[in-house]
């Protein structure tokens, strides 16, 4: 006989009270630090004043949104943000997977460990130092410009002078900094594949390449898809730190993104309402991307976040 939900829930609670106790701190964390502050986004519709507080400040409607959407540069900012983000995903997403697959084929444990450690080291360097290094490598008569001069580049000029190089420099330096770190999760997924599957494949006559294709890849496919869907959820989040450390007014056309523009607009002045408005706008687009991607992957591959 079917019992009501609350009855079943109570019963389950009595039986598994320790499991419920364990989950309680996590629930509290989300309630207190993630859900409760959410009402704060209403300041993006208010003339926010510290003294009056979030609730007490006066409503001003869509003023900040109008400000932002009516900016002469709105479309350019949107385009640059999406281009930089999409390029980061297109290049930066597959590389750690390939890197993990290659590492996985390495037989010498010591060599594998060394490569792994060396490759994820840059992840821990401060972005300010990373950008200083990038500037040094792309300056005139420097490492990269001298190298490219053999292919016809005029190495009297810094590469950051050119708007067409900004996105490649931004994306490839990201790859350099993060590939090692990002491949860790794939390595652990690879470690979870049942060895018997490889054995069976070998008995069936599959060579290394076929094993990779038919055992390894399907084995990590779920992880890849989930991470990809999650990554799409931050498509609008291009942080301003790296941008403002690398750009100059000569490359605004490809480098100026929403966050760097709002930074110039005066986040430094503590204009919280305006930045909350832009943050909300970004989040809405991010959510749309996650939902769409999740739905597509559910339909096409049968896996998804929810």
């Amino acid at each position: 006989m079917a019992q009501s939900f609350s009855k079943r829930f109570k019963k389950d609670m009595r039986l598994n009270w320790s499991a419920y106790l364990l989950v309680l701190p996590v629930l509290l964390y989300y309630a207190i630090f993630c859900y409760k502050p959410m009402y704060g986004i209403i300041i993006s519709f208010k003339d926010f004043s510290l003294r009056k507080g979030i609730v007490g400040s006066e409503w001003v409607g869509l003023v900040y949104y109008k400000d932002f959407f009516s900016s002469y540069y709105f479309l350019r900012l949107l385009k640059n943000t999406v281009v930089i983000s999409a390029a980061s995903i297109a290049v930066g997403f597959p590389i750690p997977i390939i890197f993990a697959l290659l590492l996985n084929e390495v037989r010498s444990r010591a060599y594998k460990r060394t490569v792994q450690t060396v490759s994820y080291m840059p992840h821990f360097i401060s972005i300010v130092v990373i950008c200083a290094l990038i500037r040094l490598f792309t300056a005139n008569h420097s490492l990269l410009t001298t190298f490219f001069s053999y292919f016809g580049y005029d190495d009297r000029y810094d590469m950051l002078n050119y708007k067409e190089y900004f996105v490649p420099i931004y994306v490839l330096s990201n790859v350099w900094q993060n590939t090692g770190w990002n491949c860790i999760i794939y390595l652990s997924a690879l470690a979870g594949i049942d060895m018997e599957l490889y054995e069976a494949a070998r008995i069936d006559g599959a060579n290394r390449w076929k094993q990779t294709l038919h055992v390894t890849l399907p084995g990590i496919a779920n992880t890849v898809i989930l991470l990809f869907v999650l990554r799409l959820g931050s498509i609008m989040s291009v942080g301003f730190e790296k941008i403002i450390l690398l750009y100059n007014e000569g490359v605004y056309e490809t480098a100026d993104v929403i966050s760097s523009y709002t930074y110039r607009r005066g986040l430094v002045k503590g204009d919280y309402a305006y930045s909350a408005a832009i943050g909300l706008f970004n989040s809405v687009i991010n959510v749309i991307f996650v939902l769409t991607a999740n739905r597509a992957s559910n339909r096409l591959a049968g896996v998804g976040l929810f």
């Binding site: 003023v63 540069y73 523009y261 110039r264």
Partner: peptide, 24 residues
């Protein structure tokens, strides 16, 4: 406050354009 907000919104765009054109 209203004028200051209007000024900030105008100025961010204008200043971007002025500085960009300057180097061009």
């Amino acid at each position: 406050k209203a004028l200051a907000d209007e000024d900030a919104a105008l100025w961010t765009d204008l200043n971007t354009y002025i500085r960009e054109s300057m180097v061009q």
